[in-house]
């Protein structure tokens, strides 16, 4: 059984924000208006963290793209009263919108604030409704959503591979962010496949995970040279 994971090379990432836009477009993530944004209700499946280090003028600025980490031991699934969020066999932490009752316990439980809540009925101008991605269902007001590692792409890839009667090759399944990254900083693949790029990167001396001591075992690895 594959175990899907991501590696983000922070030495290569420029923080251009392309992954954020690619993600919003691919996953039909609703866009809030100015007033709602002022209330901090912007929904980003792929967020960007900014960290300043050092004393002026010797400042280092690091921008860190932050999707859902799809933890191997996810705290969010334990608190869900309705089994709307769970970890599947392939290690994807799923969010099933039609089960979600909007209690937001999972949001509180997630130490990485990866989940977002639909505070409003998603609104699009009529014209924009024509260009929604048909592979991803639209969410309604009152449910929690988050990065799915573009699970719908996995379904397509699985279909392709099985139709041709072959295994999924490394790099074939790739979320929108990894696919589009101009710095080629995001890698995606199967952690169980010892030949995969992600497996190799996860074992790199540069690899680390966010808040590792919490025991959540994130499946998103960051790579950064310790300077």
């Amino acid at each position: 059984m594959p175990k899907w994971a991501m590696a983000i090379d922070l030495d290569k990432c420029t923080g251009c924000g392309d992954c954020m836009a690619a993600c919003k477009l691919e996953n039909n993530v609703a866009i809030v208006d100015a007033e709602q944004a002022a209330d901090d209700r912007v929904m980003l499946w792929m967020d960007m963290m900014t960290i300043y280090e050092g004393e002026y003028p010797n400042i280092k600025l690091k921008r860190i793209p932050k999707p859902c980490f799809h933890c191997d031991n996810p705290p969010c699934i334990k608190v869900c009263p309705v089994h709307a969020t769970y970890k599947n066999e392939e290690g994807l932490v799923a969010q099933i919108y039609n089960r979600c009752i909007g209690c937001r316990y999972c949001m509180a439980a997630c130490p990485y604030t990866a989940k977002v809540f639909n505070w409003y009925e998603p609104e699009w101008a009529d014209e924009f409704k024509t260009c929604m991605n048909p592979d991803v269902s639209l969410r309604m007001k009152g449910v929690v959503e988050k990065c799915s590692f573009c699970a719908h792409r996995l379904q397509k890839v699985k279909e392709n591979a099985r139709a041709d009667d072959r295994e999924i090759s490394d790099g074939e399944y790739s979320p929108a962010c990894a696919d589009s990254c101009p710095a080629e900083a995001i890698f995606f693949g199967d952690l169980e496949n010892k030949e995969s790029k992600v497996f190799k990167l996860s074992n790199s001396p540069r690899a680390f995970r966010e808040l590792e001591d919490l025991g959540t075992i994130p499946k998103v690895f960051y790579l950064s040279e310790k300077e």
Partner: peptide, 8 residues
């Protein structure tokens, strides 16, 4: 019958 197989 993984939810994700049909719901995403």
């Amino acid at each position: 019958y993984d939810c994700l197989a049909c719901h995403h």
